[in-house]
Design a protein around this nucleic acid. Structure first.
Length: 316
RNA sequence: GCUGGGGUAGUGAAGUGGUUAAACACGGCAGACUGUAAAUCUGCUCCCUCUGGGUUCGGGGGUUCGAAUCCCUCCCCCAGCA
């Protein structure tokens, strides 16, 4: 049997981690984290990285792969995930791709056509970064490059110029891939986010932020979300603990919005089977009498059914 | 109670007699996005029967051809003095 790939995705604070760990224990799974921030070493509390204890319950991969000031690319993640998924299958375990970074997940499940970069030209990058959007556009047009549909997005313009094209190569979902989305309404997420922010502070987020900034400087991953807000607090731009929490919740809210927009896109919406945490847990506990393969095949069957009904509905 | 400052979209804030009041920022909503993605970028955000129309600047009154802007009065907030 070719073991399936179980993908569990969902917005921040939706409860992916908890569910994934429990499921992994039931179906003999191993978790590959698809999260652009937990790849960084030392960024633990502020990224809600699975704890040591959680990591001991189920093998976790994809954590602590890079230094916060290092360069970690989509290609790096994709290759890492491919390797780990193959290794997990080699052990006759079920690979599970779990995370909230839509792009990372897509690069693996749709097999983005990424090629190894010969070498990253830092000098050229910083030269391009100094150009204005207009200059970059002119440059791209002059060299007859297709412009990104996000024409004012400087980062993407730079990528187009570096690559010499807009890269869109990808495939359909593999037959044995199952994609489950954790469905949750925004109010619930906000409530969870608030609780989680309180917990992060209790767990030493402020000290962690201080330490990381001292060690690496104010690098990009430390400028955003929880870390960015705490940095403003340390700076005195935010003066009260209440405001700090509020701002952390708002930052999470922005992230959630982007994540949901990503997954709502018609390009992938038909591949994601959204289920509430309650339903998923009920199913898991209801099938306790089943053996591991029973629960797994139940999920697969449910997903196949979802795909069929969705696709017929779409074509007619 | 007195004196001074102030009350403009969900919030902060610009506008201080004259082309269409609400720039700008935040928040909210929607969208794009294949190598930094928790990044980066775009649109909408007073109301409506919405390619057009309507209402508004704490309440009321007044001056003026014309008032968020000047005057009177009342209400509320902040600071100082009692």
């Amino acid at each position: 049997m070719n073991l399936p790939l179980i993908v569990i995705l969902g917005p921040t604070a939706s409860g992916k981690t908890g569910y994934a760990i429990e499921l992994a224990r039931r179906i003999n799974g191993e978790i590959v984290c698809a999260d652009s921030r937990t790849v960084y070493r030392g960024m633990d509390v502020g990224t809600a990285k699975p704890t040591k204890r959680e990591q001991e319950m189920v093998p976790h991969w994809g954590l602590d792969l890079a230094e916060p000031n290092g360069r970690f690319t989509l290609y790096d993640f994709q290759q890492y995930a491919y390797t780990k998924i193959a290794e997990i299958r080699g052990r006759q375990h079920v690979p599970m791709l779990v995370g909230g970074t839509g792009l990372y997940i897509d690069s693996v499940i749709y097999h983005y056509g990424l090629a190894k970069e010969a070498s990253f030209d830092t000098t050229r990058r910083s030269r391009l970064e100094q150009m204005t959007v207009t200059e970059l556009t002119d440059y791209a047009v002059f060299h007859q490059l297709e412009l990104p549909n996000d024409a004012l997005n400087k980062r993407r313009l730079i990528r187009v110029i570096e690559q010499g094209a807009v890269n869109k190569k990808c495939t359909q979902l593999d037959d044995n891939t199952v994609v489950i989305g954790i469905k949750s309404d925004r109010e619930t997420l906000r409530t969870r986010s608030r609780q989680r922010s309180e917990q992060m502070l209790a767990d030493g987020l402020i000290e962690e932020t201080k330490r990381l900034i001292q060690q690496y400087g104010l690098v990009e991953p430390l400028r955003r979300n929880a870390y960015g807000v705490v940095h403003q607090y340390l700076n005195g731009d935010i003066t009260s603990r209440d405001e700090l929490i509020d701002r952390m919740v708002i930052a999470d809210g922005h992230l959630v919005k982007k994540q949901l927009t990503w997954w709502r896109s018609p390009r992938r919406a038909g591949d994601i089977m959204w289920r509430s945490l309650d339903d998923l847990n009920k199913q898991m506990h209801a099938s306790e009498t089943l053996d591991d393969l029973g629960l797994l095949s139940q999920l697969i069957a449910e997903y196949k059914n979802f795909q069929n009904t969705h696709n017929t509905g779409e074509n007619h």
